[in-house]
């Protein structure tokens, strides 16, 4: 009798242990909220995701706070935009994370840019051109069709580290791809009447969005990428807007609107602040909301 009680207790504990293993979530750290959103959409309940940058933060300039090291030290998976977008803050974080799984080449490391058809890959690299990204423009998540490739890269890592739940991830990936295709059709139809509209942007971070939705970015408030607007550049843009009848200046949440507003006032245009990432405002809760919001903003400004 004593033996059978011990066996019952042992098996009950074993069951609890097995159950806890089965339910144990995969800890994921992503650099951006967009990658967090896609990881959650593919990983479902299996993943517990933390994004380092907020949705309203300039992704080039994030402080590598030690508290992020703590998150990375416990992570099973790390997802990065790559292409040197986060070169100023990801290397010091990974170097201190003391976690082999998420280092480059580790099974949990995910470069979301793999297989992305890149735009603006420079033929030569010269810092005289400003903050040039040597592998190409890294703001590729702003084309929703690239979201499918990002999702595929995230799926590959999830299957690699958690093959038991492959079917779940496949089903979620299929659903994600289907939703993107359906939504892209809706979004492009909404923007279709305004195809080839000429616009100005603050920073060169919209080429993928521009290509997908048929806008035509003529110039930037920054004279060169990463160099703050100068009076001569603003004067040049004002002249250009008047000459080309450009009415829209696209700003990002993390740039002050002073320069854009000054140009808009002098050129008779208006400033549209588009969201660059999920969480840019409280209504943008996932990757689909991001484009719902941006498309609505563009359409409303151009109507």
């Amino acid at each position: 009798m004593k033996n059978s009680r011990s066996t019952i207790l042992f098996l009950a504990l074993l069951s609890l242990f097995m159950f806890s293993i089965g339910m144990c979530q995969i800890k994921v750290v992503t650099t951006l909220t967009d990658l967090k959103s896609i990881t959650e959409l593919i990983g479902g309940d299996r993943v517990d995701v933390f994004a380092i940058a907020t949705g309203y933060q300039n992704p080039h300039f994030v402080d590598p706070k030690p508290s992020y090291i703590l998150k990375l030290s416990r992570a099973d998976m790390f997802v990065t935009v790559g292409l040197d977008l986060e070169i100023g803050w990801v290397p010091p974080l990974l170097n201190s994370a003391r976690n082999a799984k998420i280092q480059k080449g580790g099974e949990g490391y995910t470069d979301a840019s793999l297989n992305i058809p890149l735009l603006q890959v420079p033929a030569s690299v010269n810092r005289g051109e400003g903050d040039i990204h040597i592998y190409g423009n890294p703001h590729y998540w702003l084309d929703p069709m690239n979201g499918k490739i990002i999702a595929q890269n995230i799926f590959n890592t999830l299957v690699r580290i958690d093959p038991e739940h492959r079917e779940l991830y496949e089903a979620n990936l299929r659903r994600f791809v289907g939703t993107i295709d359906t939504k892209v059709k809706e979004w492009t139809e909404k923007v279709a009447p305004f195809r080839n509209t000429k616009v100005i942007a603050y920073h060169n971070e919209w080429p993928y969005f521009e290509q997908r939705f048929g806008l035509h970015i003529m110039d930037f408030l920054e004279p060169k990428p990463g160099i703050p607007p100068t009076p001569s550049q603003l004067a040049k843009v004002i002249e250009e807007m008047k000459r080309e009848n450009i009415k829209i200046i696209i700003n990002s949440p993390y740039f002050t609107t002073e320069d854009a507003s000054l140009v808009a006032r002098n050129a008779g245009g208006k400033v549209v602040t588009l969201a660059t990432s999920v969480g840019a405002n409280q209504n943008i809760k996932n990757y689909f909301d991001l484009f719902d919001y941006d498309v609505a903003q563009i359409v409303s400004a151009l109507q």
């Binding site: 066996t7 019952i8 098996l11 009950a12 074993l14 069951s15 097995m18 159950f19 293993i21 089965g22 339910m23 479902g44 309940d45 299996r46 038991e164 739940h165 079917e167 779940l168 089903a171 979620n172």
Partner: peptide
Amino acid sequence: LLVASLISFCSIATSSAQQ
């Protein structure tokens, strides 16, 4: 009984996350 329940418990645990 316990072995059977253990097996079913594990399979529920594994499949509970599948959608």
